[in-house]
Design a protein around this nucleic acid. Structure first.
Length: 273
DNA sequence: AGGCAGGCTTTTA
DNA sequence: TAAAAGCCTGCC
């Protein structure tokens, strides 16, 4: 189906923002995206037009929500004042087009445990290996195979040797432990959607291998708590250099997480800014 | 109690 | 060789 969008939407910027690790560029304008049980080819045709190889029914039941299209990002960016916060304004102008995807919380839990102390290509590699080892195969609209992200059960019951072959390193024990916690219902991820941010972080950091940074990533990217603010090495450098007198979190609530993405993506592409 | 150094698997640049 | 969307453990 053909889709016209007037709000911020840039596939390349979303892909490069480091929130999704199962996007694959298939040609200059097209990405193949795996989300839960579905797989989508989406092409940027220019002039705010997009071609999606799905039915309207599937678009409205799956992808409209996945891309967070009910939210107006242009409007959110109006909270940024170029006079009082020139750095965030520059970052947002440069990186507008990023959206916070509504991804699966269980997948984000595992993905961001894997992310610690690694760069993005290495994260993609492990997520791919996990999916190919423990996920269910399916066929996309072009007849090509893709893998649905593994269930908690599949990882919780996996044998140690094959899990180690997913190149998780010392994180393998964290991944297994998290899978066991979800599989045994020691933690109920869906219940976290309604809870307050502070409570969510508290629950998540109880899990082995999940500290404040990863918990905030799961909250932002898996539960769509747009006020969550992951502080990684890059963000800490920004806060030190650009906001020595403090960052105005309360002013930007409840969109701290969205603005964090602009800062993160901008600083990574302009490390000397 | 709370803070901090050291270690950790593997990949990437 | 160092750094990478960090966290755990042990020591003070």
């Amino acid at each position: 189906m053909l889709l016209h969008l007037s709000d911020d939407f840039n596939l390349e910027k979303i892909k490069d923002s480091g929130q999704c690790f199962r996007w694959e560029k298939t040609d200059d304008h097209t990405y193949r995206i795996v989300h839960e049980n579905s797989c989508l080819y989406i092409s940027d045709l220019g002039n705010d037009q997009y071609d999606l190889d799905c039915t309207e029914t599937e678009f409205y039941s799956v992808w409209e929500n996945y891309f967070d299209l009910h939210e107006n990002y242009q409007n959110i960016r109006k909270k940024i004042n170029p006079e009082t916060d020139s750095f965030l304004w520059t970052a947002s102008e440069s990186q507008k087009g990023i959206r916070i995807l509504r991804q699966n919380p269980w997948e984000m839990l595992i993905t961001f445990i894997i992310s610690q102390n690694r760069n993005i290509p290495a994260i993609q590699k492990s997520v791919k290996l996990l999916s190919e080892t423990y996920g269910t195969p399916a066929q996309d609209s072009r007849g090509l195979k893709y893998f649905i992200f593994p269930s908690p059960e599949a990882i919780a019951l996996s044998d140690e040797e094959s899990l180690n072959q997913c190149r998780l390193g010392y994180r393998a024990k964290y991944v297994r432990s998290a899978a066991e916690a979800v599989y045994s219902q020691k933690i109920d991820l869906d219940s976290l959607y309604q809870k307050k941010e502070q409570e969510v972080i508290k629950e998540l950091t109880k899990l082995y291998g999940i500290g404040p940074k990863v918990a905030n990533c799961i909250s932002l990217f898996g539960l769509h708590h747009t006020d969550a603010f992951p502080k990684d090495v890059w963000i800490n450098r920004i806060l030190e250099k650009k906001y020595p007198d403090g960052y105005p979190f309360s002013q930007y609530s409840p969109y701290n997480g969205i603005f964090q993405q602009y800062l993160f993506a901008y600083y990574r592409s302009h490390p000397d800014a």
